[in-house]
């Protein structure tokens, strides 16, 4: 499976890194993350100062733009409008992909039958379906929901199927030998064993959905944040464009880290490698 999650698939490998005392002092995340942020901004500022301002904006200009625009209340209301189709599309994708993923993961016949087809469709870039979505759903809300759905449904399906397939047989056998079956088996054994990969699927799906949200607004009728970007690009307002991208990236990161945090809270038995 060539999943979007593969880059995140080795979280348990953290213990290997030895830290000498000097490095440990430097390794303090409360010190390093602000430092990283500041250094990145400096590099960005230097690059931007070499380029004309209509082409690429410095972080100071971007942050000023964000500050002023937020005071005017425009970006928050645009975000609120954009999130609507993202959430509807994501929920539809979860509703379709999770049952299908379990079916494929727990039933070997179903897995062998549909794994090649799913992988084949998964390897087509989702955006290439845009012409179809226009033909079927037009260019407004329905089309945007459909694109969000298409862009995250396969990522979720592949993750859930792989996870359900890899539930330790030992766990199930042990429960069965203690007489667990039926509802007890499902709620007390299957569910806890499934929650980790369901959370992973949710995380991957949400990041994809944030990605799809802006893609849809740029590829169909440009509305909300997409329109904001289009308008800015028409008048060469580089700070405004970068502001949208920057806010979207922060929003995506916040979703991802938020779900990771929830994972740690809800699933303390599923210990991840320390970051």
């Amino acid at each position: 499976m060539q999943g979007a999650g593969a880059a995140e698939a080795h979280p348990e490998s953290g213990a290997a890194r030895a830290a000498s005392p000097g490095v440990r002092l430097l390794g303090n995340p409360y010190l390093l993350y602000p430092l990283s942020f500041a250094l990145g901004l400096v590099v960005w500022e230097i690059i931007a100062s070499q380029l004309p301002e209509v082409v690429f904006a410095a972080p100071s200009a971007v942050l000023t733009h964000i500050w002023e625009a937020t005071l005017s209340g425009v970006p928050p209301s645009l975000f609120a409008a954009s999130i609507q189709h993202m959430i509807v599309g994501l929920l539809l994708a979860l509703a379709v992909a999770i049952p299908l993923g379990f079916l494929m993961g727990r039933n070997d016949t179903a897995f062998q039958m549909f794994d090649p087809v799913v992988n084949a469709i998964f390897s087509i870039p989702s955006v290439a379906f845009v012409p179809f979505l226009i033909i079927w759903f037009g260019i407004f809300f329905e089309a945007r929901v459909a694109l969000v759905f298409v862009m995250c449904v396969f990522d979720i399906l592949v993750t859930v199927a792989a996870g359900a397939r890899n539930i330790e047989p030992k766990v199930m056998d042990a429960a069965r030998s203690f007489g667990a079956r039926g509802r007890l088996m499902f709620f007390r054994v299957m569910m806890p064993a499934s929650l980790p990969f369901l959370m992973t699927a949710l995380r991957i799906g949400t990041v994809r959905a944030v990605n799809a949200m802006i893609t849809a607004e740029l590829f169909f009728a440009t509305v909300n944040l997409g329109e904001y970007m289009e308008d800015a690009s028409a008048v060469f307002d580089a700070p405004a464009m970068l502001a949208v991208v920057f806010l979207l990236a922060l929003f995506g990161l916040a979703c991802q880290e938020g779900i990771k945090f929830l994972e740690g809270r809800l699933l303390p038995w599923h210990v991840r490698g320390a970051r």
Partner: peptide, 10 residues
């Protein structure tokens, strides 16, 4: 996490 589509105009 940054969307490629959002980077395209820039």
């Amino acid at each position: 996490v940054t969307s490629v589509a959002a980077l395209v105009p820039i």
